[in-house]
Nucleic acid binder design. Structure first.
Lengths: 351, 351
DNA sequence: ATCACTTGTGGGAGCGCTCCCACAGTACCT
DNA sequence: AGGTACTGTGGGAGCGCTCCCACAAGTGAT
């Protein structure tokens, strides 16, 4: 490990200049070695590297940032005010993917919460100050002004998960449409015919796509869409309960429920139990997210798994590319990269 | 929101100097206003503030960090290599508390993963470079060299959760001992007498303290300690399964199990079910953490809740105090602050 | 020998702040 | 009147880098 303790004058950390003196070269040359420039002779490079090692030199980030006008930091912005967001593995998994991918680089990760208005205010200041080289945006709502702000400030950004179609930023998403389709097709293949759907927050683009997938799967199998089998929810457990109660009242003959999240499914399950319906005998249940809850539910819940860790990785890839590609706005294409990753249906006892 | 677009020369953001010119004062005066120095007349302050607003001035962090030799950033270090860590609410909740408390300050939060060796290497560089003003350390293992490194580099740090007794750093912890006691006392009050304990990783200090609480609760109630009722686990679900199997084999007459985590309890529950034991009629079950799993388990799991959000807050408080108190090492007391927060038993149907 | 490149190197200028010394102005004592 | 103190202010110096221009030395063509 670096850091041998006090050296030079008064315990200060060594500077470029000190390394240069030690190696018997100039400041510029040390800088070139540190930054991997090819225009350095092998002998000089070796001498500098030796000096760096001897002194335990570590570049001063602040000085570098000031001189080079970049920060070597990216921000992960969490615009979610709700607790729910944290309780689910989604966030943690994204973070794992991001962290794994980032550990190969010099970039550091800033975590910024933008739930409250005051936090948003602070975030706007941050961005205006260009305190980061790029931004990762997770879980954006349809009316969120953040993507526009980012585009306007010309800060490289990648948004994850549910996103509006008109977005100007690069994005990484899982295939909500396909995931929903696979869930419904699975239920159909199990002989279910009156399949209900409890939606997520419909102002979240991804929730909308899941509804589309649900509808198309039924249509393609030759079933007329029955709007009475669709009930709006908002991803929460409570909405699962109330939606399920409404559905049971309206369509007591339903034989399957596809919920837009596992927690919603958990709420639905509770109401089904209380109504005396057995799972999966009377009503099959499928969730979305494949969270810990799904595995521990009774019975274990069939659920659509999103490749969240991979999404984190993909986001970083995209963002770093965009940061590296930095060039005059004029030459930038309008087309932003968009990555969509496949989901996987985890079949369990609930269906 | 700040940022009116291009101004001054070539779209650059305004500098202190520009603000000073606009307000008709000197650079130093603007700096004093920005930093809230009291030695500025009201009239001057108002003029500067107007200029700041007009220009949409935001201080350049890098320049400030370079000149003042501080970074206004703290790092949250996650030394956990395991996935488990993320899957549980512990991490997210700490983050919530930290984020909430931090949004009142100018500090930014850096997230650093130190699971792999390469990541640890990078971390050591970070710390050596003093890229942060302080460090938050969560979930440290007994033999971890990080706390020592931090103490040696004299970087303010606060460690959370399970910690070794000999630590030189400030710490915030929940009352593992008391939490375990309350769980066991609860089981005793329900008439259980042969109470088993599946431990957590015993190299984690907190897991050890839970064992102590378990033992003392039994002792104080006049029950001789029965080591055969204690089985080592490591917080995982798998360890819950194997430990439970071992316990059932050794002590088929047990009537209660206190597990060191909810996931472990989930594993135990599975084995109990397969063995035909009813919960809670035959065997009462209590977990630890009060995670989402506890609420969704069948039956819902009684669990010890740690005030994790409050722990996050307390950590920040301690850390900021320590950063503000920065002074020559000589004058520092050896005694570091230590905060212990009470737990709460969430009683549910499993006991 | 001259010119034109190329390669490697040194070091000045400057990034935007904070720190601190100098000093004008005012107030209150002797 | 002179001294002493305090308040408010301006601006030089310097933080540790990167960028880039200048230039020495070498290489090969004319």
């Amino acid at each position: 490990m670096a850091g041998h303790g006090a050296r030079g004058r008064s315990g200060g950390r060594p500077t470029l200049e000190e390394v240069a003196a030690r190696a018997g070269v100039g400041r510029g040359t040390v800088s070139r070695v540190i930054n991997g420039s090819p225009r350095v002779s092998d002998a000089t490079r070796a001498a500098v590297e030796a000096a760096v090692a001897e002194l335990g030199y570590v570049p001063n980030t602040a000085a570098r940032a000031l001189a080079a006008n970049r920060t070597d930091a990216i921000a992960l912005v969490v615009p979610e005010p709700e607790t729910r967001f944290f309780a689910e593995p989604y966030f943690s998994d994204i973070l794992r993917g991001v962290g794994a991918e980032l550990s190969d680089t010099e970039m550091q990760l800033l975590l910024i919460f933008a739930g409250s208005d005051r936090e948003r205010q602070r975030l706007a200041q941050y961005l205006a100050a260009h305190r980061v080289d790029g931004v990762l945006l997770v879980s954006v709502h349809a009316d969120d002004p953040l993507p526009d702000l980012l585009a306007q400030l010309e800060i490289p950004a990648v948004i994850s998960g549910p996103r509006s179609a008109a977005e100007r930023l690069a994005s990484v998403d899982s295939d909500n449409y396909g995931g929903a389709r696979s869930a419904v097709e699975h239920l159909l293949s199990r002989g279910r015919r009156r399949i209900a759907h409890i939606t997520g927050r419909l102002d979240v683009y991804g929730a909308q796509r899941r509804v589309d997938g649900y509808r198309d799967a039924l249509l393609d199998a030759g079933h007329a869409p029955d709007e009475g089998l669709i009930e709006a929810g908002d991803f929460t457990e409570e909405s699962g309960r109330s939606a399920m109660a409404a559905l049971l009242e309206r369509r007591p003959d339903l034989d399957a429920v596809f919920a837009a999240s596992d927690v919603t499914a958990a709420g639905a399950r509770q109401v089904l139990r209380e109504a005396g319906r057995r799972i999966p005998e009377d009503v099959a249940l499928v969730g979305y997210d494949d969270s810990a809850i799904a595995r521990h539910m009774e019975p274990p819940l069939t659920s659509v798994r999103q490749p969240i860790v991979e999404m984190g990785r993909a986001m970083i890839d995209l963002l770093l590319t965009e940061i590296a590609d930095r060039r005059p706005a004029a030459s930038r294409g309008l087309e932003r990269q968009q990555v969509v990753l496949a989901t996987q249906l985890m079949e369990r006892a609930s269906s």
